[in-house]
């Protein structure tokens, strides 16, 4: 086989990205591309699982059984999305345990939005409408991200998340049209969540450290400010239908730009929360770490049991749900897409 030079590889990689082809796990990629992806996917995964906490805070107090079922399903989805994303990161050679360890020790971040508290039931609705709305605005372009496994995870996540935002909006609408106390609760929640939601798009373009390179690599498709503007434009009419006010006196339609103008964002607050000084930073990480530590004996027990009962089907009781492939073409069927993850993971942990 002909020798492939580093220069050839870079050229091939750049050409593939430029042609909108997907980069797959075993393809050669620049170290910085890999590092950027791991950082971004990990932060995204961490956000999903830390993001469970503010909403789970209301599961046991949900005011109707219908809302309770919806909320459990939503928080469950977030755990699932965390899992999809950790899997995507794993295809880059970084295991989930390593990433969790970095989260627990504060070496990797999660979205700062989850460092705000959910003080009332209406916060659950506001998170669904605004926080999930902002997340979706951010995430839809990621379905076309240049890295295949991340893009595929995002397709699945976006599909599943479409109910998250709608349930939040519906819940807020019920409150807004409910009793005066419920309406006030909804308005208060929107007042508190609006600005932090705008901060979710990250710092302004001229201050964003990673934006330019990420856009060149097509990890990112639109700039922070572009997406923020898109979100504001979507939210204003939605707020009108809700009968709620967005807490920004400078918010008004700009005919020339064809967009809504909005007031200045308090980036000092953003940086403080990012630094760890938000209302719930400590609490969120402490709970996550505790769940992980208190679960250690469970994970160890299952590993020990598996080691004792080494063969796959050697459980003491017949399983009700064993579905062993019986077709003869198993090998053919598996040879394809799984190539994504397995060998790379093997190399990474070897």
């Amino acid at each position: 086989m002909a020798t492939v030079t580093a220069q050839d590889r870079t050229t091939a990689f750049d050409a593939a990205v430029a042609a909108d082809e997907r980069i797959e796990p075993r393809d050669w990629m620049p170290d910085a591309y890999r590092a950027t992806l791991v950082r971004q996917i990990a932060q995204h995964a961490h956000s999903e699982i830390i993001g469970m906490q503010p909403e789970a805070n209301w599961i046991t107090r949900a005011p109707s059984l219908r809302r309770k079922a919806i909320l459990i399903a939503k928080v469950q989805d977030e755990a699932g999305h965390g899992l999809y994303l950790y899997s995507a990161a794993e295809t880059l050679g970084t295991g989930r345990d390593e990433l969790l360890d970095k989260l627990h020790s504060g070496r990797q971040k999660y979205s700062s939005i989850f460092n705000y508290p959910t003080l009332t039931w209406a916060d659950v609705g506001a998170i669904g409408w605004l926080v999930d709305g902002a997340a979706i605005t951010n995430q839809v372009p990621l379905c076309r991200c240049s890295y295949g496994p991340y893009a595929r995870a995002m397709v699945r996540i976006c599909k599943e998340e479409s109910f998250h935002q709608r349930q939040g909006y519906e819940s807020l609408l019920a409150l807004s049209r409910g009793t005066p106390a419920q309406h006030a609760m909804a308005q208060d929640a929107v007042n508190r969540w609006w600005w932090p939601s705008l901060m979710m798009f990250g710092p302004p373009d001229d201050e964003s450290a990673h934006s330019a390179q990420s856009m060149a690599w097509k990890i990112k498709r639109h700039s922070n400010d572009e997406l923020r503007q898109r979100f504001v434009d979507i939210c204003v009419p939605q707020a009108e239908t809700l009968g709620l006010t967005l807490p920004d006196p400078e918010l008004k339609w700009n005919e020339d730009r064809g967009h809504y103008d909005f007031g200045p964002i308090d980036w000092t607050e953003f940086r403080e929360v990012l630094k760890g000084n938000g209302p719930c930073n400590e609490q969120r990480i402490t709970q996550r770490r505790r769940a992980h530590d208190e679960g250690a004996w469970v994970r160890e027990a299952a590993a020990a049991y598996a080691a004792k009962h080494n063969t796959a089907d050697d459980t003491a009781r017949p399983a009700h749900h064993t579905a062993r492939p019986t077709e003869q073409h198993t090998a053919q069927a598996t040879a394809g897409p799984a190539a994504d993850t397995a060998p790379l993971h093997g190399e990474a942990t070897a």
Binding site: R26, T334, A335, A338, A339, T341, A342, P343, H345, G346
Partner: peptide
């Protein structure tokens, strides 16, 4: 399928 069982 155990990921390690796959040859790509």
């Amino acid at each position: 399928v155990p990921s390690t069982a796959i040859t790509a």
